[in-house]
């Protein structure tokens, strides 16, 4: 029954919009389901404290996924984002705390490095995947130079953020994630810059004909990725209380999965901020779900894999039905 009504609403939407929104919408349903299952096993989740507890580790992942989403909207993939975010935490926990001006300069330098990476990719037709992979070694090394051993201390204002309790018992992590997503959505879908990013991904020839520069557009896109990476690093520092370049190497692939779950494509041209948010939360909640289910630890990775396949298979089924 419900699918029938779904059919009608889908059919009344323009096809392009349906294709863009549907995957993220289904992921949103999966996310709700996982949250419901978690909440059934552990009712303490349903409180400001409970939601804050399980959501706060996801914030950095969500913002890093936004970075990956921007990257994929121009048709590139970033295989270095995990170590980049890790490197940012080391800068935030040392330089930014002790000498804020130097810290800010270092963060700006990181963004600039990303823009230069974009220039390399464009000017030398280097595949983004391998360029960012090469860069990931650099981020790791730099992070180790700044902080050879995990440590340092988050700046005080970050600690204040970590203990922030918004009014109306809204969980703070949710606020951060929604704001970050809204800004990314606005930039990628409501500004001229976003249009240029997407046309770089889907139709670079058209971009050149309309007078845009491929190099500058790609550099700007990479800079946006860098800025989002820095933000992810700052929120991660709040979560781990210090710096650790090895904190999140797994983000590299997880963020790609989050974007795909959210409806993004490898071929570029699609910017799906809200879908990506749903994808990131779904993947983040999986850990909570697996912990609460207390499955045999050996099987945990398999369950994770099957859930990802299941969500995407479910999307295929629904897509077939709406055709």
């Amino acid at each position: 029954m419900s699918t029938a009504t779904l059919d009608q609403t889908r059919l009344s939407l323009p096809k392009g919009l349906a294709r863009r929104v549907l995957p993220g919408f289904l992921t949103l349903i999966a996310m709700m389901l996982i949250l419901l299952v978690c909440g059934t096993i552990q009712p303490r989740i349903w409180s400001q404290n409970g939601l804050t507890l399980i959501m706060s580790p996801i914030v950095a992942l969500a913002i890093a996924s936004m970075a990956q989403m921007v990257m994929m909207s121009i048709g590139d993939i970033d295989l270095g984002i995990g170590f980049f975010v890790g490197m940012i935490t080391t800068i935030v926990a040392t330089l930014l705390r002790d000498t804020p001006i130097l810290g800010l300069l270092a963060l700006a330098g990181s963004v600039l490095a990303y823009a230069l990476l974009g220039a390399l990719v464009q000017l030398r037709s280097v595949p983004s995947l391998i360029a960012t992979l090469g860069a990931s070694f650099v981020w790791l090394g730099m992070g180790l130079f700044v902080l050879p051993v995990p440590g340092g201390m988050a700046p005080d204002w970050l600690f204040k953020y970590a203990f922030w309790k918004p009014p109306l018992s809204i969980p703070a992590p949710l606020v951060t994630m929604v704001v970050a997503t809204a800004v990314t959505w606005f930039v990628t879908r409501r500004t001229g810059l976003g249009v240029r990013f997407r046309s770089l991904g889907s139709n670079p020839v058209a971009l050149v004909r309309s007078g845009g520069s491929l190099v500058i557009t790609r550099m700007l896109a990479y800079a946006v990725v860098g800025v989002l990476g820095v933000l992810a690093g700052i929120t991660l520092t709040a979560e781990i209380g210090g710096g650790d370049v090895n904190a999140v190497p797994g983000y590299t692939l997880t963020t790609v999965a989050a974007v795909i779950l959210g409806g993004g494509m490898f071929t570029g041209g699609r910017a799906v901020a809200w879908g990506t948010l749903a994808g990131a939360i779904t993947l983040g909640l999986l850990t909570v779900l697996l912990t609460l289910l207390s499955l045999s630890p050996n099987l945990q990775p398999a369950v994770q894999g099957f859930i990802v396949i299941a969500v995407l298979a479910g999307r295929l089924v629904v897509e077939r039905m709406t055709r």
Binding site: L120, L123, R124, I130, G134, A135, V138, G141, M142, L144
Partner: peptide
């Protein structure tokens, strides 16, 4: 140091990419 090794390895990979990629070093894509 392990840190230095990684930075060097990264830059070497990027350098090889810079030289070995399809496009001519000078000129338009």
């Amino acid at each position: 140091s392990y840190a230095g090794q990684n930075v060097l390895k990264g830059f070497l990979v990027l350098a090889v990419l810079f030289l070995a990629s399809g496009a001519p070093i000078l000129g338009q894509r």
